[in-house]
Every structure is written in structure tokens, then in C-alpha cells.
Simulated assay, not measured.
Amino acid sequence: MQEEKKTLGESLNRFGRISRPANVVLTAFLGIMTLLSVIPFILVIVISFSDSEMILKNGYKFIPEKFSLEAYQMIFADGAVFKSFGTTIFITVVGTLIGVFLMSTFAYTLSRRSYAYRGFLSKYSIMPMLFSGGMIGNYIVIVNILGLRNSIWSLILPLAMSTFSIMILRTFYQMSVPEALIESAYVDGASEWTIYFKIILPLSLPGLATIALFLTLGYWNDWFSALLYIDNNQIVPLQYLLMKMETNIEFIANNAGKMGLTTTGALPTETIKMAVVVLSTAPILIAYPFFQKYFIGGLTVGAVKE
């Protein structure tokens, strides 16, 4: 019997291996794809620190002829960017926490086969994926019914729930959390909240981290909500502020002659565009490695003894 198990294990190991030539080819291919993804962003960073006149004269180069902080000095000139950074960080952190809590609890409810209204709530949550109220309907609800115009909550609540993320978490609970753990907790007298916080959440870190990353990207990159609901410059998020700055500078540069201006030719329009990309992307690139360590499976392997 042991010999049969050993033979089966060896055959499975051989099945999962790849040959050395194939390994070299795959490594080279993935390395090339990685470079093709990273090199453009490196070029963007270099351009953002380059002198605008040299770029207009000689074009883009990986090694700039002259370094300059002019683009960043113009962006950070009046201090509005720092306020927007704080607003965006608050929106991202609070929105991610609220979204993860709401979607994880709702998905846990849908994953329980014993719950009486599971079918109704599943259909109710899937409906918005098929039929949307549209932008006008969303605007009426947020502004007229909820009264959240010029409120920071108008940037948080609309993105806090996602049917797609709920379905991902529901499937994760069903596939990764053994029913035997929940049943044994019931036998020991644990309540639903105790089961959720002490059993479900610790075993669901990969799924929760994935949803948290989706929410973080959504909140950090969101500018359209501010365009619809925010007129107060004190709570404008970073993405919307950077987009307005870039649009205004480009408009002034393109219409300098009509406006009777003579010094706008020195405006670093190209470097400002690249600086905007760096400022809007760098925080996400820094935060991503902290989420990636949870993108693994098998946390529940061995949780239930056979």
C-alpha cells in the first residue's frame, strides 16, 4: 500500500515538472514581457524629471540631458495637491474598510445553504449586473434622495458594493471554508458573529485581500464621482484635481496667442503629464506588494482532519 502511494506521488510530481529547455524558454519569455511592462513606466518617471525645453528640442530620452523639478514644483505650488492627497487617502482607506466589511458579510450570508432567503438575495444582488439605473438614476439617488452633494460620502458609498466582488467572495467561502468548521463551532455554542470574526475571516485572507485591492484601485483612481457630485475644492480627490490641472495647463499653452500671453511657451506641458502619471500611480505600486503576499491558496488545507 505504501509502495502504491509512493509510486502515485512520484508520478504526480513528474506530471507537474517541466523540462529544463522549456523552463529556460518560459523564463526568457516572461522576463521579456516584464521588461516590456516596466520600461515604459521607467521612461515616464525619467521624463517627469526632465527639462521641458530639452524634451521639445530632442524628444524623449531614457537619460535626460538636463534634470528638472519644474513639473513637480508647478503641481505642488499652491498646496492643493497635499489636501487632495489627504482626501484621497481618507476616501480609499475608509471606503475599502466599509466595502470589505459589507461585501464579506453579505457574501458569507449567500454562501450559507441553510439561510432561508439565500435565493432571493442572490437574485437581488445579481440584478444590478444585468440592469443598471444609469447615470441619471444614480445622480438622482445620491443628490436628491440621499442629499450627499458636496459630501465626501458621495465619493465613498457608491463604490462600496460590487456584485462581482460579492460573487467572488461567495464562491471563495463555498470552496475554501469547510462546512465542518462551521458545524463544529455551532456545536460549541458559537454565535454567527463569533463564527464570522474568529473562523471565517482568518481563513479568508486571500479572498478579502483580493477584494480590498479591487476597492483600493477603484477608490484611488476614481475621478468621475467628483465630477458629478463635488463643487467644493476642499474635498476634491487627487485624480480629479490632477486631471483639472493638466487640462487647464494644456488649454493655456494651446491658446496663449489668443489670450495675449507670451510666457506660456515655457510651460512644461509634457513633463506635467508624466508627473501626473507618476503621482497617481506610485502609491498603488507601493501598496500592491503588501496585498500580494495574501494571493496564495491552501490556507484551509488540513483544517479538517479526515
Rank of each mutant, 00 (worst) to 15 (best):
M1G: 08
Q2I: 05
K5G: 00
K6E: 14
K6T: 13
T7R: 15
F15P: 00
G16E: 09
S19P: 03
P21N: 01
N23P: 00
G31I: 08
L35S: 12
V38L: 12
L56T: 14
K57D: 14
Y60N: 06
F62C: 01
I63G: 06
F67E: 13
Y72S: 08
Y72P: 11
Q73D: 13
T92E: 15
V93W: 10
L110W: 15
S111K: 12
A116M: 15
Y117F: 15
Y117D: 15
R118M: 02
F120D: 14
M129W: 05
L130E: 14
F131W: 11
S132G: 10
G133K: 05
G134E: 09
G137Y: 05
I140L: 05
I140G: 09
V143M: 02
N144I: 07
G147N: 07
G147H: 04
G147R: 04
R149P: 07
N150Q: 12
S151I: 12
W153Q: 08
Q174P: 06
S176L: 05
A180C: 11
I182E: 14
A190P: 11
I195R: 06
L201R: 11
P202Q: 09
L205H: 10
L205F: 02
I211C: 09
T216N: 06
N221G: 00
S225A: 15
N232T: 07
N232R: 06
L238T: 04
L238V: 05
L242C: 00
L242Y: 04
I249V: 08
A253E: 04
G257S: 01
K258Y: 09
M259N: 08
G265K: 03
A266E: 08
T271H: 07
M274N: 06
I284Q: 02
I286G: 03
Y288T: 06
F295G: 03
V304G: 11
